[in-house]
Write a protein that binds this DNA or RNA. Structure first.
Lengths: 327, 327
DNA sequence: TTGTATGCGTTATCAC
DNA sequence: GTGATAACGCATACAA
């Protein structure tokens, strides 16, 4: 049997109440007794029972993190940071993978979120209505990489990311740029499209439609790029950008000599290919840390939405367009 | 306030005990009342309080999974599978990232494992002695991708993986093969070295020493490969293999024409590079599923260790060695 | 088959 | 500053 608070109290010759205070409200107990209790607790290897504590305090010590796909390096990076920051504040993290399924997502948050001290919804695919239902629960909920239902959220500046990428391509001489979009329901994808609208007339944008946010989606989009006549393509994320590069090359198109490619995220794999991917870097670890800080913060954040900056990282997949001027 | 069992009981006009039984021991209650209670519970949106249930039953409904690095795609894949399988049996999963630190690892398992229904230690870096201490706790513990301390475990056939890889290289004509090892404390790395010892005299093996199990480790090993005179190199994992390929090329060595490269794991990124990586595929999802099944199984598994098969996947980074015979 | 009473380990509320 | 005691929500031994 595990050693309980009463065991500690008995061994220290004090009441359970005093033992409890000595450990969780040290100021309320006389210095010598406090130290005595703490020493005894350490010697006995006492670990407070989370369940009992939760029952009375209402706080479980657990945070719940929901992601669409743990194997996607974007979410893995956020999960790692969340986990690390949560530990620093004494919380364990229950991580649930919703398998890109909005229905499962809603079910999981209902099931797991009920007894968590806070819920982090990373890139949820569910509708604003479902988000609203979730928000109806009293526990704090925070959206990561998504806005909606008036919930507090932390996101990145998607529009600025698009602006930076296109500005870079424009400076290189590109005048016709394609956008290979992510899944239809993606909030961040919608924001990027907004950004493309707001660009002005210097660059013509060709919309290639929605694709699965993975390597295969990029492969599919590559053929559309060639048909579009664009000299550069912006992908919804790095995985798609990789698929684009691969397929373009397979069709005899040089990257970046013939077509430039820009990704989004700056996931570790972006540097594992040759040439390394030019991409709009998201502050993934910071996203995770900020999310925990806001969720656990003393009060609701002043602004419902916290926006983190992004930064274009120019590497090997962008270059001036081939010279097509008439001689 | 959340709806409690008493609320359900009151609304259904029965006692709390009957309500409890209707939900968790349906056979013990009369059919009509049972259905009545269940319907009322559903309508009220009743969710049992995990903490209260744990306090009385001793089971928390949580599984604890410890990994050295969530961002490593190997562990992300295992975590995803564990999470999915655990959900099927009504368990949530607390995932902790030990940051490749044996000390943190031990601390986390002590902290988180105490109140979990079971603990999964994936590729733990801690010593057998520390493993022993962990095992002393009563809760079930299962090792994944590691054996030790007499604990039950699920692993892959590392020796056979090495055998398959070297056999492939030998068939291509390679006679001198280098091995770029992983971290010094890695159990699987040790097993692979065992496999290399047992190969017989047909192939000469050059040991390149221990490296960090990431891209950078492969980069460092690449220069050693060239100095070793080997025509092929086996890497501890795919990430290292990618680093090897990258650095070899940077130094003007063609892959696979001049040097062949074989990885381990078959992590998704293995197919995202050109040419795709020849690698020893580990059944990652199966590893995770099997781990949960064994952990939750009715009794200790018959054999303390369950071994899963591996399979060499030949792709683009292996080819016959350059012809170096004297003319 | 159903209800009553008890206790799980901890913290909060009181007296002292 | 400290110690009894109650209470959190649920499952179970026991009584009916």
């Amino acid at each position: 049997m595990a050693v309980t608070l009463r065991d500690v109290a008995r061994a220290a010759g004090v009441s359970a109440a005093t033992a409890s205070r000595a450990l969780s409200a040290p100021d309320l107990v006389a210095p010598e007794r406090r130290e005595l209790v703490r020493r005894v607790a350490r010697e006995l290897g006492y670990r407070p029972n989370r369940a009992a504590r939760e029952l009375i305090t209402g706080r479980s010590g657990y945070l719940c993190l929901l992601v669409p796909d743990l194997e996607n390096p974007f979410f893995a990076a956020v999960a790692k940071a969340v986990q690390s920051r949560a530990r620093a504040s004494g919380h364990a993290v229950v991580i649930a993978d919703a398998e890109e399924d909005p229905r499962l997502e809603a079910e999981l948050v209902a099931q797991l979120g009920a007894q968590a001290d806070g819920v982090l919804l990373c890139s949820p695919r569910m509708s604003d209505d479902d988000l609203m239902t979730v928000a109806a629960g009293a526990r704090p909920v925070l959206l990561v990489n998504r806005e909606g239902a008036g919930l507090p959220s932390v996101v990145v500046d998607n529009r600025d990311g698009v602006r930076q990428a296109v500005r870079h391509l424009h400076a290189l001489g590109h005048r016709r740029v394609a956008y290979a979009g992510g899944p239809a329901g993606s909030w961040s994808d919608a924001r990027r499209r907004d950004g493309l609208q707001a660009l002005g007339p210097d660059v013509e944008v060709v919309d290639l439609g929605a694709h699965p946010p993975a390597f295969a989606g990029g492969v599919a989009a590559a053929d559309l790029v060639l048909a579009s006549g664009a000299t550069a393509v912006l992908a919804h994320n790095d995985l798609m950008a990789l698929g684009l590069v691969d397929r373009l090359r397979a069709r005899g198109v040089r990257v970046p000599d013939d077509v430039s490619v820009v990704g989004f995220d700056d996931v570790p794999v972006a540097t594992l290919v040759t040439p390394a991917l030019t991409t709009v870097a998201m502050p993934l670890a910071r996203l995770g840390r900020t999310a925990v800080d806001l969720l656990l913060g003393p009060r609701e954040p002043a602004a419902p939405t916290t926006v983190l900056p992004v930064e274009l990282v120019v590497r090997g997949t962008t270059a001036p367009p081939p010279d097509t001027s008439e001689p």
